[in-house]
């Protein structure tokens, strides 16, 4: 069964059409890198797959069903919670997401404790369980967020910019970890990012968004001057140098630019929702 099927999907956010009649099929167990310029709709697409945003046209199916309350989906949001400034320990932070929508006291029970242990172990974060969040590095917090996303044993992981504001060394660690977990559990992954290169060794295929459209395929098929020029609506050249890919426009290197904009900002504006 396919993990995700998009058929003629149109998504509108804040009065703007972000994606227009997009079709794509993502198979179970695939690792998909999701790219595109700011505002191309990466976060919007993830929110639609979660069922938080209804398409104005077309259908979205997740494992053959309409999306509902993120069922069978693990999610790592882009907006980092304010909890990272608190002195709470890693285990309690992860545990907050275990059946967190149920009413009543947060009593875990043996099964809950086992599942949290399993999630922490899977992301190699057992030593973080007792440490306060406020003392952790960005990479360590990212591992806890991944553990949280694994609770409930999802078959699909949606990871929204997990590499943002991480050093290149930690970026590789996170990509390697996600790849290993994805293989081990046989789950599908949608991984949004600004830079292509850190994900090259891990991705099965890429989904490139831009100008309301989407291109899905292998890196060789999609990351070409022709396809990207269409998506960016501007002339783009793709250079391959020593196993790295540089996406260049007349105005300079696009990916490096995008990264500079977002490097220190967790709340950039390719999504514009509020939680009131």
């Amino acid at each position: 069964m396919n993990a995700i099927e998009l058929q003629g999907v149109t998504l509108r956010q804040g009065g703007r059409t972000v994606l227009s009649r997009v079709g794509a099929t993502i198979e179970a167990g695939e690792f998909i890198g999701v790219f595109g310029p700011n505002g191309a709709g990466k976060t919007t697409l993830l929110r639609a797959i979660l069922g938080l945003l209804r398409p104005t046209a077309g259908t979205i199916q997740v494992f053959g069903e309409a999306p509902r309350n993120g069922a069978r989906i693990g999610y790592l949001p882009q907006k980092r919670s304010a909890a990272s400034n608190l002195g709470l320990n890693g285990r309690d932070f992860v545990a907050s997401a275990y059946e967190g929508t149920r009413w009543g006291l947060p009593i875990l029970g043996a099964e809950g404790r086992r599942e949290i242990d399993w999630a922490l172990e899977t992301v190699e974060a057992r030593e973080l369980a007792r440490r306060p969040l406020s003392d952790m590095s960005g990479g360590e917090r990212q591992r806890l967020l991944l553990a949280q996303a694994l609770l409930g044993k999802p078959k699909l992981l949606l990871l929204d910019e997990p590499l943002i504001s991480l050093d290149p060394r930690y970026q590789r660690n996170v990509v390697d970890l996600v790849r290993r977990v994805q293989r081990q559990l046989g789950i599908a992954v949608l991984f949004t990012a600004h830079e292509l290169n850190p994900l090259l060794p891990a991705m099965d295929r890429v989904l490139y968004l831009g100008s309301g459209r989407a291109a899905l395929g292998s890196v060789e098929e999609v990351v070409t001057g022709e396809v990207l020029s269409q998506l960016y609506g501007a002339p783009i050249e793709v250079l391959r140098i020593g196993g790295r890919i540089l996406v260049v426009s007349a105005h300079g290197e696009i990916e490096a630019d995008a990264h500079r904009h977002d490097g220190h900002d967790h709340n950039h504006d390719d999504h514009n929702h509020d939680h009131a």
Partner: peptide
């Protein structure tokens, strides 16, 4: 409180 985005995604 700790994970508003995730909680919302889970239907809370």
């Amino acid at each position: 409180t700790l994970e508003p985005e995730l909680a919302e995604a889970k239907g809370l």
